[in-house]
């Protein structure tokens, strides 16, 4: 097994990788653009074509990949720590499927065409609604298993409702639009999308700023954590709200991007000595790196139709997850 690395060094390394990928994402794409010229034109005159490609196409795409990836990594780590379950993902408590349902409803009733804001707002509302429902279903002092089961139930319900909407969809175009959206993509990102995503994302992150130590304490179980001064119901409420806001915002803009929230914490856990608190920031950077990389890959692949980034993360993520399971079989009891 690979060993623990000092936190400052690890964060520095991950920041450097994320930063390079961010730049790479700005510079490379389906259109090769002369980078320096584009930058110069951006500063001189924002209406030139090159400047537009950079600021209106590449920049929002890279920003959204950075922020959505970080959200997925962060929330995955927080959920796994809170539930002490290595299979927990950010979507487990209903936030992702709720967001998808909300967004699909917005698409379905055509309101997405009316205003570009209705889709993300539908998504965030769906995420908050589904998460709240899981929270209420499980009850204030719910055990971990109850929470997981309530999450599974609400997720299935949301997926069933999405299927119902697809089933009843008036035209094959509507179905296609919905299905493609659900695959998760960054290709139609605009700066407006980014600004819509930003408040919920930042609010969620801020809520998670101070939970690290409580999550560390939870390593020893709920009773011990409580005896160590952790207010468990409050911690849970805080994480629920944070995940609903941040994941809801991300999914509403990018569609469902799977596996990042599940896999990234597993990849990085050995480097932080398995400490859940330290894993949060690390995992956020890891998520950003993975999504940026996947999005770059998608753009560089020579395909007639652009492969959706959600498809890539799942295709790469699932086998990798399997590999992790086999490698760490003896650690999972």
């Amino acid at each position: 097994m690979l060993g623990e690395i000092r936190q400052s060094r690890l964060l520095g390394l991950l920041c450097a990788i994320a930063g390079s990928l961010f730049l790479f994402s700005l510079l490379f794409g389906s259109q090769a653009i002369p980078v320096f010229q584009a930058l110069q034109e951006t500063f001189d005159d924002t209406s030139s074509v090159l400047a537009l490609i950079l600021t209106e196409v590449r920049l929002p795409r890279a920003l959204i990949a950075l922020f959505a990836g970080a959200t997925l990594g962060l929330c995955g780590a927080a959920m796994q720590a809170m539930l002490r379950n290595p299979l927990a993902s950010p979507g487990l408590i209903g936030s992702a499927s709720g967001a998808a349902l909300g967004a699909v409803i917005a698409l379905y009733f055509g309101s997405a065409a009316l205003s570009q804001f209705s889709l993300p707002i539908g998504g965030i509302l769906g995420s908050l609604g589904a998460t709240l429902l899981v929270y209420l279903l499980a009850g204030r002092n719910a055990g971990t298993l109850t929470l997981i089961l309530a999450g599974v139930a609400i997720n299935s319900l949301a997926l069933a409702l999405i299927s119902l909407l697809l089933n009843l969809a008036p035209s094959p175009y509507a179905v296609r639009e919905i299905v493609l959206w659900m695959m998760g993509s960054l290709s139609n990102s605009s700066m407006d999308n980014f600004w819509i995503m930003l408040p919920g994302t930042l609010l969620g992150w801020v809520l998670l700023l101070r939970v690290g130590r409580a999550l560390d304490a939870l390593t020893l179980g709920e009773e011990t954590a409580q005896s160590m001064g952790i207010d468990l119901p409050r911690l849970r409420w805080r994480i629920f709200l944070a995940v609903a806001l941040a994941v809801g915002s991300a999914v509403s803009v990018t569609g469902a991007i799977g596996f990042i929230g599940l896999v990234v914490p597993h990849m990085l856990r050995p480097f932080v000595g398995y400490q859940p608190g330290r894993l949060l920031a690390t995992s956020a950077l890891g998520g950003a790196i993975l999504l940026l990389a996947a999005d770059i890959l998608v753009r560089l692949l020579p395909a007639q139709t652009e492969i959706k980034v959600g498809v890539v993360t799942a295709l790469v993520g699932a086998p990798f997850f399997l590999y992790l399971i086999i490698k760490s079989r003896r650690y999972i009891q």
Binding site: R213, E223, M228
Partner: peptide, 26 residues
Amino acid sequence: IAYLPQQTEVHWPLSVTRIIELGRIP
């Protein structure tokens, strides 16, 4: 007041030192 429950599970393979450090959280 420190409390040592009947069966404490340790959910991640933390090292001994890291676990004992958790005791300082309060």
